[in-house]
């Protein structure tokens, strides 16, 4: 009986802390979304409000009347994120397959190499990368943001760890007997087996690419090519200085797609993190 009492006290503390943290997670975004519907005057009077107002359309007009082009940023980010995610998961799976199923001389050396380069961050190679891209006049070419994702060491590592215990050589063997070529075997038999791992990595690949600020900020100078995070950085500039409502609206628009993806897939995303997901 006494033991139960002790647990009740403990539980109260746990719930208080958890609810506090939950509020802390929601609060900034709540203010952001509510203020997106309020006028600058209202925000100046009271910057915190729990009820939306009716200036959403006006804020939208101010926001899009200046350099912030939501649709363009969205389209650009979509193109880059979808393409780089597709390349990333496909070629990482292929490389992982090469590491798991074939017995080649440099296999172990290659795997060790992948583990060693996993930690190299983009920031420390950026000057050389920029100069290389600048020399071939490709700084505003989206391909320069897409193609590098073919080589994603951390994803290869994850895919290999997934494939190693999952794929039995007999399956591949029987496909060979049926006369399937190696490449076809990979596409029609192995890729479907890897679906869960691919789904996990695709979500994180997409989110990382969508959120990436550093590389696009260095490479892109053409406003037409701006991605969402760069569009966001425009909100800080002088053009929106006192348009509080439209700043909040701009911020809201950039995170809306992420909120939708997150709340639709949160179960899988949390499970993916638990698997030792790879964050950029």
């Amino acid at each position: 009986m006494q033991k139960n009492k002790h647990y009740t006290g403990m539980k109260v503390v746990i719930y208080i802390v958890c609810i506090f943290l939950a509020i802390l997670s929601i609060f900034p975004f709540w203010i952001m979304i509510i203020n997106a519907t309020r006028s600058t005057y209202e925000i100046q009077q009271h910057a915190i409000s729990f009820l939306p107002s009716k200036f959403l359309v006006k804020n939208w007009n101010i926001l899009t009347g200046k350099s912030f082009n939501v649709l363009r940023g969205f389209t650009n980010s979509m193109i880059i994120s979808v393409c780089s995610t597709a390349l990333n998961v496909y070629f990482s799976s292929l490389t992982a397959y090469a590491l798991v199923i074939y017995d080649w001389k440099l296999r172990n050396a290659f795997f060790k190499f992948i583990m060693a380069i996993m930690m190299i961050p983009a920031q420390v190679t950026m000057i050389g990368f920029y100069q290389m891209v600048y020399k071939i006049h490709m700084t505003n070419n989206m391909l320069m943001l897409i193609l590098p994702s073919i080589a994603a060491p951390a994803v290869v590592f994850f895919m290999r760890q997934y494939l190693q215990p999952t794929l039995s050589p007999e399956i591949v063997q029987s496909a060979r007997i049926d006369g399937a070529g190696e490449f076809r075997t990979f596409n029609t038999i192995v890729l479907p087996i890897m679906k869960p791992a691919i789904a996990t990595q695709a979500i994180f690949g997409f989110v990382n690419s969508w959120n990436n600020l550093f590389t696009p900020m260095v490479l892109l100078t053409d406003q037409k090519k701006y991605t969402m995070p760069i569009m966001v950085s425009l909100l800080k500039g002088d053009i929106y200085k006192t348009e509080f409502g439209s700043i909040y609206l701009g911020l809201t628009l950039t995170v809306l797609p992420l909120f939708i993806v997150y709340f639709a897939l949160s179960k899988y995303i949390i499970a993916g993190v638990a698997l030792g997901s790879v964050k950029g």
Binding site: L21, S25, V232, L251, T254, V255, F263, I269, I270, V273
Partner: peptide, 17 residues
């Protein structure tokens, strides 16, 4: 789900927010 949420939101947006 709520504790992990800030991690997935664009850092650029969070900084400006």
């Amino acid at each position: 789900v709520l504790f992990y949420m800030p991690n997935i939101i664009t850092a650029a947006t969070i900084a400006i927010l």
